[in-house]
Simulated assay, not measured.
Amino acid sequence: MVDVAPDRSATLVHVGVVRSDPRDPIESRLATIAAGLRAVLDEHRPSVVAVERVFAQQNMHTVMGTAQASGVALLVAGERGLPAATHTPTEVKAAITGYGAADKRQVQAMVARILRLDEVPRPADAADALALALCHAWRGDAAGAASGPLTPAQRAWADAERLARG
């Protein structure tokens, strides 16, 4: 979680990663994630939740896990009456580094620099979550909707959603 001022300067509020035992059944793993997210939202009371939007990946196992965890985060936000926004990894990378194909180390280094941290947040998932929060704060509004012109990834997603609705 981050606080972002109108001048785009940011301050770290909280960072953590909810882990579940990979040997547990999926329903137990998702329940663990939901409980962890509820605890953080109840403690810190954010005004919006930003979640990774799975756009396209080669590894189906990774896509499914990310999509399921994202769905849980959206559900928990909805339970709390919080607006939620989704951003693709490419959008996040572009917002944080200026380059949509940046590697993890570049994103992590920029997150540390933006938040004036002495070291890169660990584990890597923590830095990813902070990058997502910063991306949303810089690209979105308090109601959870993106502001300004759409990125190519956002346009492609919007077009795909329109086609799906028929």
Results as ranks from 00 to 15, higher is better:
Ile26Gln: 15
Leu41Val: 15
Ala101Glu: 11
Ala102Cys: 08
Ala153Gly: 12
Ala156Gln: 14
Ala145Asp: 10
Pro46Asn: 06
Ala94Met: 04
Ser147Gly: 10
Leu134Pro: 00
Asp103Gln: 15
Val72Tyr: 06
Lys93Asp: 04
Asp21Ala: 07
Asp42Gln: 11
Lys104Gln: 10
Pro152Arg: 10
Arg113Gln: 03
His44Trp: 14
Ala31Glu: 10
Arg155Lys: 14
Ser20His: 15
Ala69Phe: 02
His14Asp: 07
Ala142Arg: 12
Ala142Ser: 09
Ala34Ser: 14
Gly166Met: 13
Pro83Gly: 01
Ala77Thr: 02
Pro22Leu: 05
Ala77Glu: 02
Ala69Gln: 04
Ala133Thr: 02
Pro121Ala: 05
Ala67Cys: 03
Arg80Tyr: 03
Leu134Ser: 02
Thr62Ser: 15
Leu41Asp: 04
Asp24Ile: 03
Gln106Glu: 15
Lys104Asp: 13
Ala126Cys: 06
Cys135Pro: 00
Ala73Tyr: 09
Pro6Trp: 12
Asp7Met: 06
Gly78Ser: 10
Pro121Gln: 02
Gln68Ser: 08
Ala56Val: 14
Ser147Ile: 13
Ala34Gln: 09
Val76Ala: 05
Val49Tyr: 04
Ala5Met: 07
Asp159Trp: 09
Glu79Gly: 13
Ser20Lys: 07
Asn59Cys: 13
Ala126Gln: 07
Val51Asn: 03
Gly100Lys: 14
Asp141Ile: 03
Pro152Gln: 15
Ala50Trp: 05
Ala156Gly: 05
Tyr99Asn: 10
Leu150Asp: 12
Arg80Trp: 05
Asp42Cys: 10
Leu115Ser: 00
Asn59Gln: 12
Val111Met: 00
Arg80Gln: 14
Asp141Cys: 06
Leu150Pro: 09
His61Met: 14
Phe55Val: 09
Gln108Ala: 13
Lys104Ser: 12
Glu43Phe: 07
Leu132Met: 11
Asp7Val: 04
Asp42Ala: 15
Ala84Glu: 01
Glu43Val: 06
Val111Arg: 00
Leu30Phe: 07
Arg105Ile: 12
Val17Lys: 05
Arg162Asn: 11
Val18Lys: 05
Ala153Lys: 12
His136Arg: 11
Ala85Lys: 01
Ala129Leu: 05
Gly71Val: 12
Leu75Thr: 15
Ala127Met: 02
Ser147Cys: 10
Pro25Glu: 15
